[in-house]
């Protein structure tokens, strides 16, 4: 865990003792960490670890059972999603959520219309959308319905929609899951380019290799709690992480 006392003064996002209970299940329990501006924080953990719940809590889709979320040091716990979006925090959805009745271009333009430093007119937003589609590599689908996109392209659309809101902090919920190798390479490249433009990133990924190569810092969730945190290399060699993530058998096989 990033020790609270080590939290940098410029933490763009800070989470304090965040917990969420669904009925009898603690999806997230007493989670604290912070992210410095310009960083890429990787969050990993097995299925059901609470990763998406974490994103939903930060972005106001869910209300925490207890704990706080701070953006730029300001308490935004329990704010509505659009308020968080206007605090310049954007997100992607693990299960992609395009606006199905609109074209791919219009999907992205909506972010530019309603996010931060909004474009003046719908036309300008559509122009912004075209440039973003170019950047993420799906410009040729601009006039298609989002339902026609491949899995990889639908994820790119999610990313473009989020970027269009002009965020300072981007929460990515598994954009690489289910992608082929070449597609992952492209996605990693893209994440680097997003960071280079000054956007802080929290990336949730299943794909270990990808996350190691992009993250400055890694946080491991298991059963709703943080079980390890630190430099990618250190975290990945941690026995507990390997066990939680890959199961006993993998640990045993490695030790023999």
């Amino acid at each position: 865990m990033i020790a609270p006392e080590a939290a940098p003064a410029t933490a763009i996002l800070e989470v304090r003792n965040l917990s969420k209970r669904f009925g009898g299940l603690w999806a997230l329990r007493d989670v604290s960490f912070s992210v410095a501006e310009g960083q890429i924080l990787g969050v990993i953990g097995p299925n059901g670890a609470g990763k998406s719940t974490l994103v939903n809590l930060i972005t106001g889709l869910l209300r925490p059972t207890s704990g706080q979320v701070l953006i730029d040091g300001e308490d935004v716990t329990g704010s509505r999603p659009w308020v968080i979006a206007h605090d310049r925090v954007a997100r992607t959805f693990q299960i992609v959520k395009p606006f199905r009745g609109l074209t791919v271009r219009e999907n992205v333009a909506i972010g530019a219309m309603h996010g931060n430093e909004r474009d003046l007119t719908v036309r300008d937003s559509l122009a912004t959308a075209d440039e973003l589609l170019e950047l993420v590599g799906i410009a040729k689908h601009a006039n298609d319905a989002p339902g026609q996109l491949s899995v990889a392209d639908a994820r790119r659309l999610e990313l473009a929609k989020a970027l269009a809101t002009r965020p300072r902090l981007l929460l990515i919920d598994e954009v690489m899951a289910g992608l082929r190798y070449a597609e992952i390479e492209a996605a990693v490249q893209l994440i680097h380019r997003v960071r280079d433009s000054g956007i802080t990133i929290v990336a949730i990924e299943h794909v270990m290799k990808a996350i190691v190569s992009v993250s400055d810092h890694i946080l491991v969730l298991h059963h709703g709690s943080i079980i390890a945190s630190g430099e990618p290399r250190d975290v990945l060699s941690d026995e507990r992480v390997i066990e939680a993530y890959l199961g006993h058998r993998y640990v045993k096989r490695r030790s023999t």
Partner: peptide
């Protein structure tokens, strides 16, 4: 229907969670 508000109405109709996430005050 051609304005920002028009797109916001359509977005609310399609998916309110996604609409909120891109900064639309759905309420």
């Amino acid at each position: 229907s051609r304005s920002r508000f028009g797109y916001a109405m359509v977005a609310v109709n399609e998916d309110q969670e996604a609409a909120g996430a891109v900064g639309i005050n759905t309420t």
